[in-house]
Amino acid sequence: MISEFALILVSTILVNNFVLSKFLGLCPFMGVSRKLETATGMGLATTFVLTLSSICSYLVNEYLLAPLGIEYLRTIAFILVIAFVVQFTETVMHKTSPLLYRVLGIFLPLITTNCAVLGVALLNIQEQHNFIESAIYGFGAALGFSLVLVLFAAIRERVSVADVPAIFQGNAIALITAGLMSMAFMGFSGLVTG
């Protein structure tokens, strides 16, 4: 049981990393990786929302859509659930934990449109995860996202002061870096077999 959960975590964080293997959530990956602090904030906010929304979407699918036989509305229902979860969390957090609210800041509402969140919710159904597996899958996906985001931000901070040839400057070198990171992460695919 435990080993199965650990396997899901390792799989989502390293082997099937959502950014570098499944290429989901590339927008924040390129957008908020210029500074390490913002990348950390974004990682935290995403971890929070992804875990919560994968749990909620599992519940909605299992207890609302499946019994009524309307699974074809999954995508739109999940978008609704994610938007609700994010908005609700923001409201509650603003009141109860102003400090965390300030740390997460603008990134929290922005996650609503992060395709990795919807992707995780849909993949949970596709891979027929149960409740706990869904939660761990979402959490692992978020950890993997945060990990590569922080790594990438750290690399970009170094690259920004490096002597890059003029034609590679800016986003070009960032995309090449992302490609190299993706190739490096492909090396993990031998880690878990079967």
Partner: peptide, 14 residues
């Protein structure tokens, strides 16, 4: 009906 109820429920909760 389900989508309407779901949406209104979320709206009310928010």
């Amino acid at each position: 009906l389900t989508m309407t109820i779901l949406a209104s429920l979320f709206g009310l909760l928010l």
